[in-house]
């Protein structure tokens, strides 16, 4: 009946988007005032002096670097799970050596204080 595994996924995507659009339509029909309210941002009642959008102080920048290394590693780890017993002990040894190297990196980053930022 189904042409592919992905068919229901696409139907579902359309369905959910349609439901959300419908909700918006219902809201337009029943809302108290249709004209949007234009207002300033809330921070307790007073107005900010500048636009809040700003270059953010990304204090966890070193964490993103460590994260990226591991995220790349996951690309190998997902397919690896399927072939462990097929390939044998060498698969396990190689993967965990790799992970060990990365963990050593984590240890180094920790010692450098990358995970503490306040």
């Amino acid at each position: 009946m189904q042409t592919s595994d992905w068919q229901p996924v696409f139907i579902l995507l359309v369905l959910v988007l349609a439901a959300i659009a419908l909700l918006h339509a219902v809201a337009i029909a029943v809302c108290a005032v249709r004209e949007p309210l234009r207002t300033g941002p809330f921070s307790g009642g007073l107005e900010p002096r500048e636009h809040p959008l700003s270059r953010f102080h990304v204090r966890w920048y070193p964490v993103t670097m460590v994260f990226l290394a591991f995220d790349m590693e996951m690309l190998f780890m997902y397919p690896w799970t399927k072939v462990v017993s097929e390939v044998g002990p060498s698969a396990v040894i190689e993967m965990f050596l790799f992970l060990g190297v990365l963990l050593a990196g984590v240890g180094y980053a920790w010692r450098e204080g990358a995970f503490r930022w306040s």
């Binding site: 900010p48 002096r49 500048e50 636009h51 959008l53 270059r55 102080h57």
Partner: peptide, 21 residues
């Protein structure tokens, strides 16, 4: 409204400084 201006931060970077009440 103007955008935020830059100033030195506590870690020695120059970043937007936002005035928020």
């Amino acid at each position: 409204l103007p955008m935020a201006a830059r100033a030195d931060d506590r870690d020695g970077l120059r970043l937007d400084r936002l005035h928020v009440p």
